[in-house]
Amino acid sequence: MARIGAQERRESVIRAAVAEFACTGYHGTSTAAIAQRVGVTQPYLFRLFPDKRAMFVAALVRSMDDTRLAFERAADGMEGGEHALQAMTNAYAQLISTRPETLLMQMQGYATVAAAEARGDDLIGEVVRAGWMRIWETVHLSLGADAEETASFFACGMLGNTLTAIGLPSGAER
């Protein structure tokens, strides 16, 4: 049997961290739960990541990058407008229906910012803001740099996020 390398194990930890933090948040998630999901010991986790916060940040970056990449791939080769809008809408619906932990992890990140910054920890807020701006820019450019259309896309998306998070069907499913 081939031995799994540290980079591959690190990727497994990030995936497990996304799943765990998405469900129970930063304070509700133990590193023991992440280790158990991956099938490693807690000390091994800390050989890959310096602390729980670093795992949370890696999970948050991954979820935001996955969202940005879904938009980027969907709109690739399109010249803005209605086709790009529909392609990104469909890609996002597919992402959150097949991997809801991606959305829930981002929402956990948003919810954690204020508490972290109140304690003097600006890192999570910086990661959230930078990730959000990368997502915004990807969508904005894909929609032909139309600010109103970009704002409308995100407004509808946030409504969909809220409905998904509280377990109600989105507009298309009602």
Rank of each mutant, 00 (worst) to 15 (best):
E20I: 05
E20Y: 01
C156F: 09
D66C: 03
H27K: 14
A22Y: 00
V61T: 13
Q94S: 15
A116L: 11
G80D: 12
T102R: 02
N90F: 04
R134G: 00
V38G: 00
A32E: 14
R9S: 04
E8I: 00
T138M: 12
D66G: 02
H83G: 10
T98V: 08
A130F: 01
A58R: 08
F21K: 00
E82M: 13
A59I: 09
T98R: 07
I166P: 03
T29G: 05
A114T: 07
A33Q: 09
V40I: 14
E149M: 03
Y110H: 13
E20M: 04
S142N: 07
C23W: 04
T67D: 06
H140S: 14
G28H: 13
G39F: 08
E149C: 00
V38A: 03
G109I: 01
Q42G: 10
A74S: 13
V128E: 00
G25L: 05
G39P: 05
E173Q: 15
L163A: 10
P169I: 14
A74D: 07
A114I: 11
G39M: 06
G171S: 15
T162L: 15
G81K: 05
V113E: 08
I34C: 05
R3D: 08
C23Q: 11
D146P: 01
G171Q: 15
L45M: 12
R73W: 08
A33I: 06
E149D: 04
I96Y: 02
I124N: 00
A59S: 13
A17I: 03
D51K: 12
R134P: 00
A116C: 14
Q36R: 12
D66N: 09
E72K: 07
V18T: 08
L60Y: 01
M55P: 05
G25Y: 07
E72N: 04
A6P: 11
A84K: 01
L69D: 11
L48Q: 15
D76M: 09
G125A: 07
A115K: 12
G81F: 04
G80H: 08
G157M: 04
V38Q: 01
A91H: 08
A58D: 13
A70I: 00
A93S: 15
V38E: 01
G157F: 02
I166A: 08
V127W: 01
A70R: 00
A74E: 05
S30M: 07
Y44A: 10
G144N: 11
M107R: 02
R62M: 06
G39R: 10
M78A: 11
E137F: 04
G131R: 01
L45G: 02
R53D: 03
A151Q: 11
M88Y: 03
G171M: 12
L163I: 12
N90T: 06
L104A: 02
T41K: 08
I135Q: 14
M64K: 03
